[in-house]
């Protein structure tokens, strides 16, 4: 079979274009860039209630992404949720009295863990536990409290 160089060239271009498109999809469209396995250290925190927090939810400090939630478990003995976070190694100066809180981005947005640094001289290291935590706000509880308050004030 006679096969011109143009045919081969065109097929090569098709394959190159297809691979380039896959590359664009992976790098530009999806969240691969945030997958990049930078070296990180694990920190755990216990919460009464994690609300809608999920694995791979962001961990922010001062609004900047510093890590991701790596795992959420339930401690059967202490009846608390245990959240494991992977924090990037480049942010290794969090004091060990840092406060971890679960906030919601926007009114109905996704939930994230916010780290507020404390004033201690010692830093969090791999495997250390954040002692000061505040749980996710559960909207139903808030509404319930609000209704209860307004009912009581209405009685007076």
């Amino acid at each position: 079979m006679k096969q011109s160089k143009t045919t081969e060239l065109m097929v090569g271009m098709l394959i190159a274009a297809g691979l380039a498109a896959l590359f664009v999809l992976a790098m530009k469209v999806s969240n691969l860039s945030s997958y990049s396995e930078q070296s990180s250290y694990n920190v755990i925190a216990r919460f009464e209630n994690v609300g809608g927090l999920k694995v791979r939810s962001p961990v922010m400090a001062g609004g900047v992404l510093v890590g991701r939630v790596a795992g959420i478990d339930y401690d059967n003995d202490r009846y608390e949720a245990v959240v494991t976070m992977k924090v990037n190694q480049s942010y290794d100066r969090f004091p060990d009295d840092t406060v971890a809180s679960i906030y919601t981005a926007g009114l109905l947005g996704e939930q994230y863990v916010a780290l507020d640094p404390g004033g201690s001289e010692d830093f969090l290291v791999d495997g250390s536990e954040i002692e000061f935590t505040s749980s996710a706000l559960v909207l139903e509880k808030l509404v319930g409290k609000f209704l209860l308050n307004s009912a009581e004030s209405g009685k007076k």
Partner: peptide
């Protein structure tokens, strides 16, 4: 072989 390549090109260009 061509189908996934074409679909990837389609998706990237669509975006």
């Amino acid at each position: 072989i061509s189908m996934p390549l074409l679909a990837a090109i389609f998706a990237a260009l669509g975006i």
